[in-house]
């Protein structure tokens, strides 16, 4: 039986949510993606060790005013991936706000993943990896990772970590068990065989 999990991608405009999803889905990258209006929905089956899961990805518009449209999607998601741009301190500051939004809808009953994207832009970096990690711990995120969708760096590991963090629904018990905290360090070996990307 194929388990389906809903994952919502949140974060400021232009941080690379669409890019991240596109890299995961099709392993492609373009310099510019058209701005996402409203919500885009994509799904992909992922094979992980002994599990097969179907990930349903919600790509959202980043502009603040679109937040009013998003709550119900958050409410329905198992995982909230909050993305910021390591070259933009401002987008990093907003992470907290996005997490608040998530918690209002889901309480603690959601896996929070924080992603610092555009890690290839070393010269323009404004947010250090340490700061990212610290903030992630503080916010109770299950996963923190830095990615570069341009270089294709850490994207597969990100989704592998997400899949590993997913609650196992095997038991008939409706109550989802607490997701295990997994190693928060970003230095994870890339395991290309982990999913069929």
């Amino acid at each position: 039986m194929l388990r389906k999990y809903k994952i919502v991608f949140l974060g400021d405009q232009g941080v690379g949510k669409t890019s991240l999803i596109t890299r995961f889905m099709y392993d492609t990258f373009e310099d510019q993606y058209a701005a996402t209006i409203g919500i885009d929905f994509l799904s992909k089956t992922m094979y992980l060790d002994d599990k097969t899961v179907r990930l349903q990805l919600w790509d959202t518009a980043g502009q603040e005013r679109f937040r009013s449209l998003i709550p119900s999607y958050i409410r329905d998601s198992h995982v909230a991936v909050i993305v910021y741009d390591i070259t933009s301190q401002k987008s990093f500051e907003m992470v907290e706000k996005w997490i608040d939004d998530v918690k209002v809808e889901r309480g603690e009953d959601v896996i929070i993943v924080i992603v610092g994207n555009k890690s290839d832009l070393i010269d323009k970096r404004q947010v250090s990896q340490e700061d990212g990690e610290k903030r992630a711990k503080l916010m109770g995120a299950s996963v923190f990772i830095e990615t570069s969708t341009k270089a294709g760096h850490n994207v597969k590991p990100l989704f592998k970590k997400i899949a590993q963090a997913l609650p196992d629904f095997e038991s008939a018990n409706k109550k989802e068990e607490e997701a295990e905290n997994i190693d928060i360090s970003a230095d994870v070996p890339v395991d290309a065989a982990s999913c069929q990307c």
Partner: peptide, 13 residues
């Protein structure tokens, strides 16, 4: 500021 970020994301194709 938001406009600036969207300019290049308007019909990039």
């Amino acid at each position: 500021e938001i406009i600036e970020r969207d300019l290049n994301r308007t019909f990039p194709d």
